[in-house]
Amino acid sequence: MDNKATTIEILFEKAENYTRTTIELARLNFIDKSSDVLSSLISRLVIAIVFAMFILLLNFGISFWIGEMLGNFFYGFFIVASFYLIISILLYSYKDQWIKLPVSNFIIGKMLK
């Protein structure tokens, strides 16, 4: 009888160790995937910020140049602002197709990698 009790105790102990190991592995996998996604998003955000600074300065130059050609500087700013209004309307119209879907596919791809 003592032999059966010992065998059952060993079985429960191995099951408990297996459960702990599985939970620890799942936790480590989650940490790995989330850190990969977060680092990718942060690196893309930094690149986007630097690119936005470039675009901002370029827009100032274009606005002043157009304004100088038209005789008043504010005309150039109105034209550039109108251009961005058109772009923002297009982006809003196609936001799911152009922004939401690619971003969610990127995150899902990183999580499943």
Rank of each mutant, 00 (worst) to 15 (best):
M1P: 06
K4D: 09
A5Q: 12
T7M: 13
I10N: 12
K14P: 01
K14N: 14
E16V: 02
T19S: 04
T19D: 03
T19H: 03
T21G: 03
T21W: 03
T22W: 02
T22M: 08
E24G: 05
E24W: 03
L25P: 00
A26I: 08
L28T: 10
F30Q: 06
S35A: 10
D36R: 14
V37N: 01
V37G: 01
S39C: 04
S40A: 10
S40G: 06
L41V: 10
R44F: 09
L45E: 13
L45K: 11
I47S: 04
I47P: 00
I49S: 11
V50M: 04
F51A: 10
F51C: 03
A52E: 10
M53W: 07
F54R: 01
I55V: 13
G61Q: 05
G61W: 02
S63Y: 02
F64Y: 04
F64K: 00
E68V: 00
M69K: 08
M69I: 07
G71N: 04
F73L: 08
F74D: 12
F74W: 14
Y75L: 05
I79Y: 05
A81D: 08
S82M: 12
F83Y: 13
Y84H: 14
L85C: 14
I86V: 15
I86P: 04
I87N: 06
S88M: 15
I89N: 11
L90V: 14
L91Y: 15
Y92W: 15
K95H: 15
K95L: 13
Q97F: 14
W98G: 06
W98K: 11
I99P: 00
L101P: 00
L101Q: 14
L101V: 10
P102T: 01
V103H: 06
V103E: 07
V103N: 06
N105Y: 03
N105F: 02
N105G: 00
M111C: 04
K113C: 05
